[in-house]
């Protein structure tokens, strides 16, 4: 059955889904604010151990990837399939670089025996335990969203190749973009909360 196409419905659905994502992280921001309030000093000191350059680079990577996927929509609407695909590929590449950075960052901490449940971390006091608990959990959940986003974008790229997404039917590409921007948006807050507010 060929359904009547309603792009606005599709986009509304995507936005509503993004709201649930915002609330999902919203719950974590509640936890973060409470524990930061209770353990202000420990959070302050622990945050200094995170590498600001790595965080900054990752922020910029995500911002660029957001811009490229946004431009990819413009490209498809101008009927420039090749450029659109190129920009999507670039977005995926940047996403992978982000994950790679994250991998080394986590690896570095784990090598120093700082991970949830480690005796070294436990000996450093409750504020540090909570800071790193939240750090791993929130950035981990964020990384999971990056992975989901990458799969989503990969799927969209396939649809473009097959000409299922074209200049007058691009709402799915737009939706994948919305999702990717949200992931970016969350990072925009995670970055200062973990790396900067020292």
């Amino acid at each position: 059955m060929e359904e009547h196409r309603d792009d606005l419905a599709s986009k509304t659905g995507m936005w509503l889904f993004l709201f649930t994502e915002m609330l999902l992280f919203g719950g974590l921001f509640v936890v973060y604010s409470v524990y930061r309030y209770i353990n202000a000093d420990a959070f302050h000191l622990a945050a200094q151990e995170l590498s600001v350059p790595v965080g900054t680079i990752n922020t910029i990577i995500l911002l660029i990837s957001s811009a490229t996927i946004a431009m990819s929509v413009t490209a498809i609407r101008k009927n420039n399939k090749k450029l659109s695909l190129l920009l999507l590929g670039f977005t995926i590449l940047l996403g992978l670089v982000f994950l790679g950075n994250k991998y080394f960052e986590w690896g570095h901490h784990i090598k120093e025996n700082i991970y949830p449940g480690s005796p070294v971390l436990a000996s450093r006091g409750q504020g540090d335990v909570l800071f790193y608990g939240l750090y791993y959990f929130m950035t981990g959940l964020h990384a999971l969203h990056i992975i989901i986003g990458l799969v989503f974008i990969g799927f969209i790229a396939r649809l473009i190749i097959k000409d299922r997404i074209v200049s007058d039917n691009y709402v799915l590409l737009e939706n994948s973009g919305l999702y990717w921007h949200l992931v970016d948006l969350i990072w925009i807050f995670l970055f200062p909360l973990f790396y900067l507010i020292t």
């Binding site: 936890v31 353990n39 949830p116 449940g117 436990a122 409750q126 335990v129 909570l130 608990g133 791993y136």
Partner: peptide, 12 residues
């Protein structure tokens, strides 16, 4: 064992 809500790890 992250400790979000575990009082022995500082959680509430």
């Amino acid at each position: 064992n992250i400790g979000f809500f575990d009082p022995t790890l500082g959680g509430d």
